[in-house]
Structures are given as C-alpha cells and as structure tokens.
Design a protein around this nucleic acid. Sequence first.
DNA 1: TAGATTGTTAATCGATTAACAATC
DNA 2: TAGATTGTTAATCGATTAACAATC
Lengths: 210, 210
Amino acid sequence: MDKKKNISMAVIKRLPKYYRYLQELKNNDVDRISSKELSEKIGFTASQIRQDLNCFGDFGQQGYGYNVKELYDQIKNILGLKKEYNTIIIGAGNIGQAIANYINFQKIGFTLTSIFDINPKLFGLKIRDIEISDIDTLDSFLKKHTVDIAIICVPSKNAQSICEVIVKNGVKGIWNFAPIDLNTPENVIVENVHLSESLLTLSCLLNGDI
Amino acid sequence: MDKKKNISMAVIKRLPKYYRYLQELKNNDVDRISSKELSEKIGFTASQIRQDLNCFGDFGQQGYGYNVKELYDQIKNILGLKKEYNTIIIGAGNIGQAIANYINFQKIGFTLTSIFDINPKLFGLKIRDIEISDIDTLDSFLKKHTVDIAIICVPSKNAQSICEVIVKNGVKGIWNFAPIDLNTPENVIVENVHLSESLLTLSCLLNGDI
DNA sequence: TAGATTGTTAATCGATTAACAATC
DNA sequence: TAGATTGTTAATCGATTAACAATC
C-alpha cells in the first residue's frame, strides 16, 4: 500500500469505481480477474488499470491476474474504509435530511453523530434517532466531540461561516453540498457535491452544439 | 457561440463554475472583468480562462476585458439555460424527494412534471403539487408526454431496467443518482451523481498516505 | 497615443496508451 | 515447458501554461 507517492487526482477519482466493480465481482464469487477482463467491465483500458493499481503496490501476478478478494481489500484500505468516521450534518433541509436518512453510509463506517440546523421548528426532531440541534450549539459540540467529517448542507450564504467554525475546531474533512467554493486551510480536505453544476453539465451536453 | 467544435469535457465541466461566478459579479453590479481578475476569484489561470472562453467565441475585447452581463448571457446560452426542460423523477426515496423539493431547479428552467415510485404507499402523495405515480404507469406516461430529462433515484438493481424504459421512449437526458454505470445508446446523455464515490474520495484523501 | 488585455500560437506539463521484458 | 498476464518503460496524446502580436 506504499509504493509511489504523488498519486494524481485522476487516479484517486477512479478508485471508488474500482472498488464498486470489485465488490460486485466478490459478491458474484469471482476469484480472479485480469486487467483485460476488468477493462471490458469497467471501461478503462487494461493498461490504465495496471498503471493505476501499480501506484499502490504489486497487487497482481504475472500469468494469473489479480485475486479479487485481495485486490478488493487493498482498495478498501486505500480508500480509508478500514477506519470509522464520525460525521455531522449541518443543515437539515432537503439534502441534509436525505443524507441523514441514507443508512448505507452508516454501513460502510460513517457514523452520523449529530445534526444541526438554524430553524427552531426542527430542534429536537429526530432522524434515525439522531436529534436535530440548534446550530448555535455547534461550536460547543465540536469542543466536546471528535468529528472527522462535517457534511455541509446549508444555503451558500451561510456555508463559509459554518466552515470556519468547524475548521477552527479541528475538523479535517468537509463534504460540501453548498454551491460555493469554500475557503479552507491546506490541511483540510473539501469534497464538493455541486448538484446544480452537474445538472448544468447535462443541459449543456443536451444542446449538442458541442 | 459557434467557434470551435470538439470542446473537451474538461472545458465543459468548468462552464457551470464560470456561470456561477459571473452571476455573482452581475448581482454585484460589476460591469467588466479581465481574465486576470476573474482568475483571482475563480482559481483558474487567466490563460486557461481565455482559452476556455475562446472555444465558443470572441467574447472579450483587447484592452478592456469581458463585459460581465454579455459573457454571463453567452455562457447561459451555451449551458442550454435559455431553454425549458421537462423532467421526471423516478424513485421517491430520500434523494428523489430531496430533488423534488428543490425549487431552485424549477427557477432555472427545469420543470418537474411527474414523480414515479414502486411503493404503493406513496401513490397519490404530492410533493410541491406533483403527484407520485405508480412506476408501472411510467411507460404510458412517456408515450403521452415529452420528457427531456429523467432523474433516476431508484436503487441500483432497478436502475438499468428503468433506464431502458425511458430510453425506449425517446428520453435523451438522464441525471443518474443510482450507484451504477448505465448502459445507454450513444445519443443519450447520462450525467452521474455518485454520492458514495464522492464520499469515498473524501475518505481516501483524508488518509493522506497519498 | 500609451496602456491594457485579448486571441492565439508555441512550449510545457501531465495523463493515457502501447509495447514488451520479466515471470508466474 | 508454453501461455498468459503482469509491472514498467517508452511513445503518444491532450490539456494547461506561457508568450506575444494584434488591437481596443
């Protein structure tokens, strides 16, 4: 798991897809797979698959290919899925509630520990047994609890100030659903989900003048 | 708006971000902006901005820069936002409901015309005045109404078969939230939002062995 | 006019693909 | 052993950045 450094973002962005296909193969009791076979399923070239995997180690074997279970485990580890993460959701609107209700993240090690909102009508309501708290208590909550990932689902005008509160309290990972580019120190990882940008990409491509 | 062909996906994926920043400038009554100034805001190089915009036309003026209102309008047009789109949501679970409730898409021209689900308990319920219908009526609905974009929010095991129904009925755009790679004819545009892949990217980066 | 800034070409950088020796 | 398939180097391709003449 420690071969080359400076893995490019292009490679990292492909890893979850490898993971998904390997999980499927594992579930179908496939024992081994060659880069060529995987290539046909996943749609990357065999060459690229070998290059990608080689960033992290010699996972294959000449003449044989890759052991599915082993490769799956390696990628699971690279993706950080051997660990557990404490998460909080900030903003219990449409998206915040949808994410809160989504139990699959719990299953793979992302534990939702609290939900915050600005709307008093929501205080005390529970989603999957987790109470929605006053956003004014966020700062003190963070001082008492370790949070690995904060999921920002507030309107964009509030996102930066929320971001500063959580960063100040040592949160290192942000999953940002607000349609804004957050300003953070270098050591904080921000992963954006910009739904409207995705929809606009679709409408752009639909107007095939391109 | 019709300069070069073969615009790369890298450029297209940046367009929504240009649009967002230009909207902000416009709202702040900024009249003109140079590639250098925009560069500092948006975080792309000035050179890249000029290259990107030049794919679509000569929008700038030497010695002056770009007229914000004009450039905004051009990009709005390139993104296909001068048109209206009829959309349907298939799958009224967490994500489907969140998207259905999200009125901002309506505001920019994406009209939700129907919602479908497999769960009889949901039939007849309304989200923003739009009734949830039996998924078995999807095929006949599509034969009667023009749908530009189908938003797939069903579990991955059902996504491909749903996809085939909508493609068969001439839907050309798919916004796919199911964690699966859909198989579609070439002339159908699929834009994926794979939330779990986004989350896994985040946890991968958080484990900074990279 | 002089200064500013574009559009565009050329140079660089990085990512993907091809090729093949190593080896299971 | 012979066949298969990797790991890895080299070649290609594409995207980004730099440079500058054109021109407002």
